[in-house]
Simulated assay, not measured.
Amino acid sequence: MSGAGDTASMAMAALPVFRQNQILTILKERGQATVIELVEHFRVSRDTIRRDLDLLEQRGLLIRTHGGAVHNDQLVRVDSTLIRRMDEHVDAKRRIGEAAAQLITDGETLILNGGSTTCAVAAALGERRNLTVITNNLRLPPATPEAAVRSIHILGGTYWDVSQVTIGTVGFASVAGISADTAVVGVTAISAAGLSMGRLEEATETSSMIDIARRTIVVADHSKFNRTAFARVGAFDRIDILVTDAPPPDAMRQVLDAAGVALVVCGG
């Protein structure tokens, strides 16, 4: 017959398994978590959490990141081709494009990055006039109503056929004379940690666009929520407005509110 000491020992032995299962539950709900967050949640040491994360990664249940981890299901590994993205969430992107276009005023200089949602924004600019458009998105010029624009400037660089964008070998933000009133950017993924994209070069280019604009509008449908892509663009304090088609998860909404980001939700 087992005594109280044996029962306590069994409970102690089960604790790591229970904690690791709870870590997976947290990652599934939030998409990702930092070591510090998990330390505070479980009231254990950083070394303990790191060992848990290492073990779970070895079992293929999560992916370690700098300072934390993401759940396997939430990791965006490879950016999809633009043609495929153009066919996904078409109605949501149209509504997002129309809502974002209402935030633009006549005479602005806009800078837009690659992606299907920014093309939807450009297509919805029919009521605007005298816009100057700067972009690396080669699908965007034919999508933009002629009456809306004064001029369209294409950023040079290497052509990427998978995304139909140009990526410059030298950051354009440092070039004298380039500035914009508004950056309208699409991203691959959004989580409580901020914005990310599938390719490092596109993330760097998008970050530079944000740097040279007075305000930044991020356009993204709900499928991007609670996901983390390979390359980080920045935290929410770098953007001004998020235009989307559904309310974001509570954890993300709290971070958006704390960063002072205005939320525009254009539901169906």
Rank of each mutant, 00 (worst) to 15 (best):
I134V: 12
T144F: 10
L53E: 13
A100P: 11
D54E: 14
G186E: 08
G67P: 06
D257V: 08
A203R: 02
V90S: 01
N72Q: 13
L256K: 12
E29I: 11
L138I: 14
F172V: 09
R139H: 14
D211F: 00
R59H: 14
R59C: 01
S223D: 14
R139D: 15
K224E: 05
P249Y: 10
A259P: 01
T182Y: 11
G67T: 11
V219R: 08
V261A: 02
R129Q: 10
G5M: 15
G97E: 02
V78Q: 06
R30P: 00
N21P: 03
K224H: 10
M86G: 00
L138F: 14
L155T: 02
R50G: 12
T244D: 02
R129F: 01
D181Y: 12
K28A: 00
V233L: 07
P16M: 07
I190C: 13
Q164G: 07
R59F: 05
M12I: 15
V261D: 06
I63P: 00
H41A: 00
A13E: 10
E37N: 04
Y159E: 01
I134N: 13
E108I: 12
I63C: 15
F236V: 11
M1S: 11
R128I: 07
I178S: 03
F230K: 05
M86F: 10
D221S: 06
S196T: 09
F42L: 06
R51S: 03
A262P: 06
G260D: 09
A122D: 04
A143S: 05
R128N: 11
R64M: 08
N136T: 06
K224L: 00
L55I: 14
I190W: 04
F236S: 02
R77L: 02
A192F: 10
H66A: 08
A148I: 10
A189K: 08
F172I: 11
D106H: 13
A258H: 08
P141N: 04
A124C: 04
F236Q: 10
S163R: 13
N136V: 06
L110F: 09
A14P: 00
I96P: 06
E88D: 12
L256E: 02
S196Y: 13
R46K: 13
D79V: 11
G31Q: 07
G107R: 03
G157P: 04
F172T: 03
L112M: 11
L112F: 11
F225W: 10
P142A: 12
P247G: 07
V255H: 13
C119D: 14
M197S: 14
A124W: 10
E88L: 13
A183L: 07
I212T: 07
G31W: 07
Q164C: 15
I134K: 09
L125P: 00
R139W: 15
T206F: 00
R214H: 01
M209H: 05
I154S: 07
L110S: 00
A251L: 13
V261R: 09
T65G: 05
L38R: 00
T105V: 15
E29N: 12
A262M: 14
N72E: 15
G3V: 03
E29V: 10
A101W: 06
D106E: 11
